[in-house]
Amino acid sequence: MESNIVLKAESLSKWYGNILGISEISLEIAPGVQGLLGPNGAGKSTFLKIATGQLKQNLGKMTLFGEPVYNNHRLFSRVGFCPEYDCYYKDVTGWEFILFLAKLHDYKGKEAADMAASALERVGMRENENKLISAYSLGMRQRLKVAASIVHNPDLLVLDEPLRAVDPLWRVKIIKLIKQFEKEGKTVIVSSHILPEIEAMTNNITLIHQGKIFAHGDIQEVRSLIDKHPHQVSIVCVNPRLLAEKLIRSDYVLNVHFNNNGNNVVIETNNRDSFFDSLLKIILETGLEIEEMTSPDDNLQAVFDYLIGK
């Protein structure tokens, strides 16, 4: 739905001298959590900086909530940005920093203090708020950045590598926080090069590599579109050879191989639906007991590896 689109990029390109940042990126993002995935140097940060008005694109258009982004500072009252790198004064306390940012959004007095307190509470930084930022650990500074991006309760949250250097406990909490934002109806764009992080947050992904979009959509749909790369299904059963014999004749089974211990068969198929239909029939026919069934490549890592040609 056109009116539901929060971010729209049309043929966006940005280069730094002779180095291409992003090239011909066209993308629409609706409310919810959108994962932006790519290796280091793929163009994720460039895209996010253009989306938040930090950089001006060389070609193309970028709109947020239907309005052009660059130099449209009025728009940023609805946008929260958590940058990838450290960027604050080291000689102020966490509280002073977040309060200052709340005031930059026109909040005053007690309201600004309440907004700052709420943001710090959400990232677990209230007990350290009166310490100088220079005394914070890397993880604490990262959490402070997240607090800075949410202090003004934005409608669109753009988080560039938000979990970098954060301890495992707070990784889980921040992921929960992001999902909470989604439930509140906000739009969250999260970038990362760590695949399990994105998988934990959302099924909506955009894969970027070498400045271009390789894939965009639901992770399952993206996976299913990769026809030339067959799906793998690993089955542990009592008689894997019998199962293999029954399946090998099918047109949609491309390859069958066994693991070293012999009770595990891995089948490669280019048609998952037909495969599972056949498997069910074979189980009913033969009475074969299946102990375990998994899809080793049904995850983001495999999707990414396939797309970038590893």
Binding site: Q54, H73, L75, F76, S77, F81, D86, Y89, L101, L104
Partner: peptide, 18 residues
């Protein structure tokens, strides 16, 4: 110069501030 050093422009430019 401190904003250039600590890359604090990001925090100013991502606010409703020209």
């Amino acid at each position: 110069s401190n904003d250039l050093k600590f890359k604090s422009f990001t925090f100013y430019l991502s606010r409703p501030l020209s």
